[in-house]
Simulated scan of single mutants.
Amino acid sequence: MDWAQAFWLAVVQGLTEFLPISSSAHLILLPRLLGWPDQGLAFDVAVHVGTLAAVLWFFRASLVPLVRDTLASARRRAPVGESRLGWAVVIGSVPLVLGGALLKGPAETVFRAPEVIAWATIGFGVLLWVAARCGRGGHDEHAIGLRDALIIGAAQVLAIIPGTSRSGITMTAGLFLGLEATAAARFSFLLSIPAITLAGIWKGAQLTAGEVAVAWGPFTVGALVAAVSAYLCIRAFLALLARIGMTPFVVYRLLLGALLLVLL
């Protein structure tokens, strides 16, 4: 892997990890368009570390009280401050752990077929548009109950299918449950912290199980670039979402899915 490939793949990963447009579809499409070799598992781990750092930094001011109050709530067995939202993140992460264990085989085989990725990009894009049009709105992420968190978490399991988009499907579920678009996005980003952490651990375990040479220079650049691009993406997306809505991302997904069907 050369420096240019590491840089541009990290930019794409950082941007698409949090936008509702599917990072996996882009990371498959870009190397094919440019004739690059597969970036490999080690690079995937590096850019996941970068995107995790970005979301942790963005929410740094609210994460400390969120974690503190959730731990205090567990000790006292009663709500404490921000613990309602903290428990929603915890409960919303459970289905992904179970789903990942049950669907590990298909996730590494049939779900990675190009046609599956393309149709998932299109189909879940249409579902996002329906949710944006039909969602009731009016609630923020602090109103999420455990039932709603479980539903959003169950929807997140579908992101095991490449092309679905983890952020896209969780925002879709949040919109259907009556969250405002920005609230659905913020909760999706909070859910990404355990999701990206678990994905990094899983891929890291796969990496250490094999003998893979690590190109530390390009991989370090990849992690740093992914962190910066992901942070800027989160900040810009939350600032613009109330004005632009989900329609531009739906249109983009439809075009991307069609392009994947033509090329792959």
Rank of each mutant, 00 (worst) to 15 (best):
W216V: 14
A199S: 12
C233V: 11
I151A: 13
A199R: 00
V212R: 14
C134N: 11
A154R: 01
I201N: 06
V225C: 02
L158I: 12
L177F: 08
L224E: 08
F124L: 12
V251Q: 01
G200R: 06
A183Y: 02
R243T: 12
L241V: 11
R253A: 08
A239Q: 13
V225G: 03
T197F: 15
T182S: 11
L207K: 12
L146H: 06
G135H: 04
I117Y: 03
A131M: 09
A242S: 15
A213D: 13
Y252F: 15
G138P: 00
F187N: 08
L128R: 01
R133A: 14
I196L: 02
F187G: 11
M171Y: 05
A132F: 02
A118P: 01
L150Y: 01
L175P: 07
E141W: 03
G137E: 07
G145W: 02
I169Q: 08
G135V: 10
G200Q: 08
H142K: 14
E211W: 10
A159K: 00
L224I: 15
W216Y: 15
A149M: 05
G217Y: 12
A143M: 04
L150D: 07
L241D: 07
A239M: 10
L146F: 10
V212Y: 11
A215C: 04
V157P: 09
Y252P: 08
A118Q: 02
L127H: 07
T121H: 01
L127E: 06
G125Y: 05
V130K: 07
I160G: 03
A143G: 04
L190E: 11
G125W: 01
L190F: 11
A149W: 01
C134I: 14
A239K: 13
G178W: 04
